[in-house]
Design a protein around this nucleic acid. Structure first.
Lengths: 179, 179
DNA sequence: TGGGTCATGTAAACTGTTACATGATTCA
DNA sequence: TGAATCATGTAACAGTTTACATGACCCA
């Protein structure tokens, strides 16, 4: 139940239309809370209904025409509440780990290639995050809290990709030891 | 779309009834592919329809009466295919990271407590995994492939919990630096 | 015999995914 | 003017979650 809050956050960062939001999800917030444009439009409708956001006044609302949204005070209040709301971490879901467990029962043929493919993908993602860090959080300097928090989040992404790269490397080595 | 394969794997490890499966999900396969008993019963029905599993012959099938399933050759073949089927990792989803990003916009009050709570939960989970490792994969000895694969999977869970413990510890320290 | 637990299930609401539809704008 | 692209949406379905319903079995 976090999509509306992801959208509120994105809109506070910068008022946007549905399509702009979709694009920003593809390369920012979406790194840890992804959504398709259909989900986003549906949720924008609900948030507007709820009085949490509003469309900037347009002369005549027409389908197909750009509609820009901004957060209303009620929306900001809801987001602020949500930040302090406790919520347990969801158990992880990894189809890859599940595959390995299945492989223990039916044989590991084809598994090696998949591990290598994932390793390459995680390396790519890591590079992408590091490029963003270079661009958005340069050098050592005292930063304001918003920037420090955003940087912490990005660091989470970076460290997690590093974790997978290392774990997959180790798993491949371990697979080799036995064959 | 991995729940049926999680169930096939669990049933190959040991034929079971729906409730037994639910319990084993709660403390084994469910660590990386969780499911409720409702999902499991529905999926058992589908797998039986598809001819991938069968209920052990019972005199008269009655609601409320234990029904044990086992995997049929077709089910094993399907699982074997699936293991080699490529599938990209899903983008991660972390409500906690999203909260931090939201906190950058509306203020971080209440966030510290939530980070600490998550840190404690991840420490607990780590302990649980380590206990399982002690129990199921003792000492240094040459092991057969199935065991080595299962151990790799558990290692993944352990390392991931360690990752979160370290990251959360660092994030808390970093939060303190500025207040 | 009646309450607790084991066990299997149904129903509804919500979230996420995939495919498609429609109008507006731009520019060759 | 017609093709490409921008932009907003609808519809149908699959997966997940939550609440509830029903029957069997055990044992005090």
């Amino acid at each position: 139940m976090s999509l509306p809050h992801a959208i509120l956050t994105a809109l506070l960062e910068k008022p946007s239309s549905g399509l702009e939001l979709t694009r920003r999800f593809d390369k920012s917030i979406g790194y840890f809370w992804s959504a398709t444009h259909q989900q986003i439009y549906r949720e924008l409708g609900r948030l507007e209904q709820a009085g949490h956001i509003r469309a900037l006044p347009a002369p005549v609302p027409v389908r197909g025409q750009r509609k820009e949204y901004e957060v209303l005070p009620a929306g900001r209040a809801e987001l602020s509440d949500w930040v302090a709301r406790p919520e347990d971490p969801k158990p992880m879901r990894s189809a890859l780990l599940l595959r390995m467990r299945a492989a223990a029962m039916v044989g590991a043929s084809g598994l090696r290639a998949e591990l290598e493919r994932h390793l390459a993908l995680h390396r790519e993602q890591l590079e992408e995050y590091l490029a963003i860090e270079d661009r958005d959080f340069p050098a050592e300097r005292r930063r304001a809290e918003p920037d420090r928090l955003r940087h912490l989040v990005l660091r989470g992404g970076i460290d997690l990709e590093r974790f997978w790269v290392e774990w997959l490397t180790g798993a491949l080595a371990e697979l080799d030891r036995g064959e």
